[in-house]
C-alpha cells in the first residue's frame, strides 16, 4: 500500500480529491475553496498600512490561513514519507524544448538550474522568483481569484466570469511560456 502511495498519483485520483475539497469546505463551515485570498489576509495581518483594501477583520478569515498552513504541512508530509524515489516523468517534447533552452536538471519537481538559493540574487532569479511571484500575487487579487477560486470553485458553480478568468489565465500562461520565458532561460 505504501509503495503504491509513493508512486506518482494518476490525474484522475488527484482531480477527484481536489474536487472533493469543494464540498468538504462548504459542509465544514460554508467556506469557499480559494487560496489566493490568504495572501490578502497576510497583508491585512502584517502590513495593512492604512490601505482601505486591507482594513477588514482578517481574524474572521482565519480558517483560510489554517488551510494554507495545512497545504504547507501536507507538502512536507508527502516529501518526507511518500516521496517518489524515481525522477519525474515528463513529456519528451517538453524535455527536448527545455534542453535547447538550457535546462539540465530534470530529476526534481523543480529544475535546480533555476529554483535554487544560488540563483536568487541573479537576473534569472529576479525574473523567476521576484517578478514571477509578484505577477502571481498582483494578478490573482486583481482577477479576484486563482486556479482554486475561479477555475475550480467558480466553474463548479457555473460562473461565467470565472470562465473568462480561467481563459485569461491560460492565454497569459501560453504567451509567457512561448515568448517571455525563452528570453530568461537561455
Amino acid at each position: 500500500m505504501l509503495e503504491l502511495l509513493k508512486q506518482p498519483w494518476h490525474w484522475a485520483v488527484g482531480g477527484l480529491l481536489i474536487g472533493l475539497i469543494v464540498p468538504a469546505l462548504l459542509l465544514l463551515g460554508n467556506k469557499k475553496f480559494g487560496i489566493s485570498s490568504s495572501l490578502r489576509h497576510v497583508c491585512a495581518m502584517c502590513v495593512p498600512a492604512n490601505i482601505p483594501f486591507f482594513q477588514y477583520d482578517w481574524k474572521k478569515e482565519r480558517w483560510n490561513l489554517f488551510f494554507v498552513a495545512g497545504v504547507f504541512l501536507g507538502g512536507w508530509l508527502a516529501s518526507q514519507f511518500l516521496s517518489n524515489p524515481t525522477p519525474i516523468q515528463i513529456s519528451d517534447k517538453t524535455v527536448a524544448v527545455l534542453q535547447t533552452q538550457g535546462i539540465k536538471d530534470f530529476a526534481h519537481l523543480l529544475p535546480q538550474d533555476i529554483f535554487s538559493w544560488e540563483n536568487v540574487l541573479t537576473l534569472r532569479g529576479f525574473f523567476f522568483f521576484v517578478l514571477g511571484g509578484f505577477l502571481v500575487g498582483f494578478g490573482t487579487r486583481y482577477a479576484g481569484g486563482c486556479t482554486s477560486g475561479h477555475a475550480i470553485m467558480g466553474l463548479s458553480n457555473l460562473q461565467v466570469p470565472s470562465l473568462v478568468a480561467t481563459i485569461s489565465f491560460m492565454v497569459g500562461g501560453i504567451l509567457s511560456t512561448h515568448f517571455i520565458l525563452p528570453l530568461f532561460l537561455s
Binding site: 505577477l135 494578478g139 490573482t140 492565454v171 500562461g173
Partner: peptide, 16 residues
C-alpha cells in the same frame, strides 16, 4: 479586471 488580472496571473503561473 478578470481579463487584466487573469493575464498577469497566467504569466506569473508559467514563470513560477
Amino acid at each position: 479586471s478578470l481579463i487584466l488580472g487573469g493575464l498577469m496571473f497566467g504569466m506569473g503561473w508559467a514563470i513560477t
